[in-house]
Design a protein around this nucleic acid. Structure first.
Lengths: 163, 163
DNA sequence: CTCAAACTGTTTGATATCCAACATAATTGG
DNA sequence: CCAATTATGTTGGATATCAAACAGTTTGAG
């Protein structure tokens, strides 16, 4: 029957699994917000360019933990929409200095309001204190993952040196 | 300079943004775990099939919040590796009943140990209490998102009925 | 100064995912 | 019982992402 409950075993006690589901649901809510005709990643990119005008593509990618090649199609789209500009700086002709256009700034301003509204609804639904705790713990989780990863990397290189 | 700190504005106070980063880092750690030659999603699929032998593809997809068409290539790979079987039930010849093979069960058992080890390292790094709180809050967050989404959907259909 | 190394953006090829459309099979309303 | 609807798995087209390879540019060691 459709009503049969699935056995989940230990899965719903695993951070990775629950985190992934949360991510999917959050993206889905973002995507279905009618005023936000913009992907979550695009919103982050616009914000980062506004906050750091002239930033280049590699730094932008790095700050979002994306590969720099993944940034190319994102910026292509934003450029096609007329929201950003790529300018060649005279001092380093390999890179592009990224800037918002006037239209881009306006789009971001609207999106900011929508996102703020979503965050507010979530905070109301789950409790403002809980929301704040969650944010703090997610950051501790990030820090833990980075530490483990870097200690793994050191272990590897130590083994490499052994021969 | 490379050392210049990026301005983040309000971004690092947004659940969506921080959640995405946590997800990327968690996937990266999982992927770089040498014993785990298996994607995070594949691990979840194997576990769910073991816990719910005979489950069909749509239910499996639904339980992971994926589209049922996304399950097809995942199961193709697991089948090619000889870890799962698709059996046509006599009672419903549209669907497949999914089962682990003996080899699949062995692979899952190894992965279970590896995943358990990772969770343990994370718990040690961030504190066992913090890990438990994080898990609880992520689930509250999921519940909040589902509530908001369903109330949005009701709002839409109410508007549809108005005309 | 010079040339090897590193950096920047891009392209290509691979995988993951969604959505819409489809074929087959099962269910249901009349 | 039959026609319409629903359910299941699949395919095809779109976007997102990574990794590796590349070309142009800059930097740095000797």
């Amino acid at each position: 029957m459709a009503g049969d409950k699935l056995q989940l075993g230990n899965l719903d006690n695993m951070l990775g699994v629950e985190l992934r589901i949360a991510q999917i649901l959050a993206d889905r809510l973002f995507a279905s917000s009618p005023q936000l005709h913009m992907a979550p990643g695009h919103y982050t990119v616009l914000s980062l360019i506004e906050l750091n005008p002239g930033i280049n593509q590699s730094r932008l990618a790095q700050s979002m933990f994306l590969d720099r090649s993944s940034m190319v199609p994102i910026l292509d789209q934003l450029e096609k929409k007329g929201w950003i500009e790529r300018k060649r700086p005279l001092t380093d002709r390999r890179s592009y200095a990224l800037h918002l256009t006037r239209v881009g700034r306006a789009a971001l301003k609207l999106a900011d309001q929508e996102v703020q509204g979503l965050e507010e609804r979530i905070a109301t639904e789950m409790g403002h204190n809980n929301r704040a705790s969650l944010l703090t713990l997610i950051k501790q989780f990030q820090t833990a993952l980075l530490k483990i990863q870097s200690s793994d990397r050191n272990q590897e290189t130590a083994n490499d040196n052994k021969h």
